[in-house]
């Protein structure tokens, strides 16, 4: 099992680095842009915080984008949320199906490892990739704060990254079902799913009637504005996330170990 875990990590190393450095790099650039935009931000902060539902949606009613924390939460929060969700969805959507699409499954599954253990090894490698992705991005964000010689909000940034990781795990778990059920790589479907979740969260925060249903969406647990403004932990959303992850992983596992592998 360790061999498959390492093999999978090695195969995905390039993609992992490209995505992590791209998303983390964009966040890092956003942080560095803060000083050049600080003056303008102060002028715009009031306007942005008085745009009603849109201010709520982007967290600008509770946080001032004139502060680095507020700027980080609204800008980097969006970049990291979208970027990491897309990465998680893409990697998970092809995790199992790529073996059938590329016809490498005949080689892999003829080796003496049960299909269940192979799925487990691949799943763990994906989890490791998501952790490494988050760590690289986190390091770049901290570097951004250091370069600006600003105080680093370790607690909030840590919670933000952990919740983002959890959100990525949820999206990956759902995308894994697609991968387990398909003999072809359905990247578009996985990516679309991640974007629909983002749109759901955004609309849910703009439309007052939908607020009560926000907890269904993966993005609800990782709203940077809520984290940086010190709002309480969204317990119902976290429970929903845990339930969805569990059910998705079981569904993906069962459907994959029972399916006929395409030749």
């Amino acid at each position: 099992m360790t061999a498959v875990f390492k093999h999978e990590l090695k195969l995905n190393l390039k993609s992992l680095l490209i995505w992590a450095l791209s998303v983390g790099g964009m966040g890092f650039a956003c942080i560095l842009l803060y000083t050049s935009m600080e003056g303008e931000m102060a002028e715009m902060a009031d306007t942005f915080s008085n745009m009603g539902a849109f201010s709520d949606a982007f967290g600008m009613s509770t946080l001032s984008i004139a502060t680095l924390s507020g700027f980080f939460a609204t800008e980097v929060g969006t970049v990291h949320g979208l970027g990491s969700a897309m990465f998680a969805a893409i990697m998970a959507t092809v995790l199992l199906s790529k073996e059938e699409e590329a016809h490498t499954g005949e080689f892999l599954y003829s080796l003496p490892l049960s299909r269940g253990k192979t799925v487990l090894a691949k799943g763990l490698s994906l989890l490791a990739e998501l952790v490494i992705f988050t760590a690289i991005c986190g390091a770049l964000y901290v570097l951004g704060f250091v370069m600006l010689k600003e105080d680093i909000p370790f607690k909030e940034t840590g919670i933000f990254l952990i919740r983002m990781l959890l959100m990525n795990v949820e999206i990956a778990s759902l995308a894994l079902i697609i991968s387990a059920c398909s003999a072809k790589n359905r990247i578009g479907l996985g990516l679309g799913m991640a974007l629909v979740f983002y749109a759901y969260d955004l609309i849910g925060r703009v439309v007052p009637d939908m607020k009560d249903y926000l907890f269904f969406g993966p993005f609800s647990i990782a709203n940077a504005s809520e984290i940086f403004s010190g709002k309480e932990m969204p317990v119902p959303a976290l429970i929903t996330t845990a339930v969805i992850i569990t059910i998705s992983l079981i569904a993906a596992y069962l459907s994959y170990i029972k399916k006929d592998l395409a030749s």
């Binding site: 195969l11 016809h103 490498t104 005949e106 080689f107 003829s110």
Partner: peptide, 9 residues
């Protein structure tokens, strides 16, 4: 086992 297509990574 040797499959007919012999495809690897």
């Amino acid at each position: 086992y040797m499959p007919s297509e012999a495809l690897f990574y």
